Amino acid sequence: MKRILLSHGAGGQEMFALIEQVFQRSYGPSGVSRDDSAIIELAGGNLALTTDAYVVSPIFFPGGDIGRLAVAGTVNDLLTAGARPAVLAAAFILEEGFPLESLQAITDSMHQTAAEAEVNIVTGDTKVAPRRAADAVFITTTGLGAVLRPGLSGAAAKPGDKIIVTGSLGDHGIAVMLARENLLGSDNIRSDVAPLTEIVLRLLEAEVEVHALRDPTRGGIAATLNEIARQSQVAIEIEESRVPVRPEVAAACEVLGFDPFAVANEGKMVVIVAASDANRALGIVRDCRYGREAQLIGEVLPAPAGRVHCRTPYGAARLLEMPTGELLPRIC
């Protein structure tokens, strides 16, 4: 690896190689959490800390905008740690000449999304870059929350666990891609971007035996399930026919040559739960605003460690590999 490529930010194999070869090499293996949030252990209780940068193009897309994306994405990362999101910080890099009206629309959207997620934006920063030194607006958000359920991690999946996905896949990535290329002819495909506070907190409050939570953003569920299989040293098998994908999203993926399992989502959660609690968990998720299309899609197996298989409707099984290449750049 001599130079940074777009594929290094796509959420697939190249990004994980970058983390291992550069960041972990500099910071040490314990300096970079392989989960979406780091846990800070304090005498009065544990805190979850996460940070993320958003470079989506276009910045306004069907179903959302970069502001809603920044807040929802950071909130969801805190939730994956079993934490109740509390406060956010937001830093903006603005290109000289960016319309003030557009910035106001973005910050209003951030405020509304934060209110929906029951968090406060408490601090931030603003920098302005010369024309053509940045692309419109980049946002970096940092989130802090109180851990309600210690031990949730991609390394905590156990053989026998069941896998739930909270709704249809691929909506966000395809909506943004079609908007970018001016291929949208209607509002049929819209981003799913949303804070999933209600879903996760209700699962935790009901004392469901959740072992792992992960929002399948860059690289989709293909990257997410491979991450979990590698972290936990287990195998994962999913049933292709059970994975919800909207027909219009599936059709767009087929035309454009994308695998919907590798397309980014911004309002979905993968929930790995003990088999004894799977049906109860599914009922709780389906009773939530953003979980009505939830499905139980597979299970965790003891071996072969680190592998993910997808069983087709014809009974055959295919390997669901970690995505590689550029996938869909500038999605989140």
Rank of each mutant, 00 (worst) to 15 (best):
A294W: 02
L100A: 14
L100E: 13
R292D: 01
F61W: 05
S191G: 01
D108Y: 13
G298C: 07
I39Y: 11
A305V: 03
D65A: 04
L100D: 09
L100N: 10
T142F: 10
A72Q: 07
G82N: 02
T224N: 10
R25K: 15
L47M: 12
E181Q: 13
L69S: 04
A115I: 15
P99T: 12
E14V: 05
S102R: 14
A305I: 03
S7K: 11
A281I: 04
G64W: 05
T217Y: 08
R280N: 07
R330K: 10
V32Y: 07
S102D: 12
T80I: 03
G170I: 02
V273I: 08
N226A: 01
A275M: 06
R3G: 05
L94I: 15
F138C: 10
D187N: 05
M269C: 02
E209F: 14
I331V: 11
V208N: 00
T140E: 12
H211G: 04
A70P: 00
Y290R: 00
I174S: 03
A117R: 11
A303Q: 07
G64L: 06
A179K: 15
R214C: 04
R246N: 10
F16G: 00
P244R: 01
T123K: 05
I238T: 03
S26M: 14
Q24A: 09
A275D: 11
L301G: 02
G124N: 05
P99S: 07
G291F: 00
F60P: 08
D135Y: 15
S57Y: 14
E266R: 09
E20F: 04
D35S: 10
V56S: 10
Q295S: 14
V285F: 00
Q13D: 11
R190A: 10
L183N: 05
I297H: 01
L18Y: 15
L196W: 00
S33C: 08
A281G: 01
E240T: 01
A179T: 08
E237P: 04
G73F: 02
L282K: 02
S276C: 03
D192M: 01
L100M: 13
G143K: 11
Q233E: 08
P260K: 09
L320H: 11
L49Y: 15
A134W: 15
K268N: 05
C310K: 13
Y54I: 04
F60W: 07
V308W: 06
A53H: 09
A278Q: 03
G291C: 00
R311V: 12
S168V: 08
T50K: 08
A129S: 08
A114R: 08
D259C: 03
G170H: 05
G306S: 06
D35R: 11
V165N: 10
L301T: 08
V245N: 08
V147D: 05
S153I: 01
K2W: 15
V300G: 03
M15V: 04
L296S: 06
N188S: 13
V285K: 00
F92T: 03
N46Y: 04
P216G: 01
I272T: 02
V273C: 01
I121H: 03
M322T: 12
T107K: 12
I174P: 09
E237M: 06
E41N: 15
V22W: 12
P99V: 08
L196H: 00
A90T: 13
L49Q: 09
E266G: 14
R330F: 13
A274E: 03
G283W: 06
F61N: 07
S26E: 14
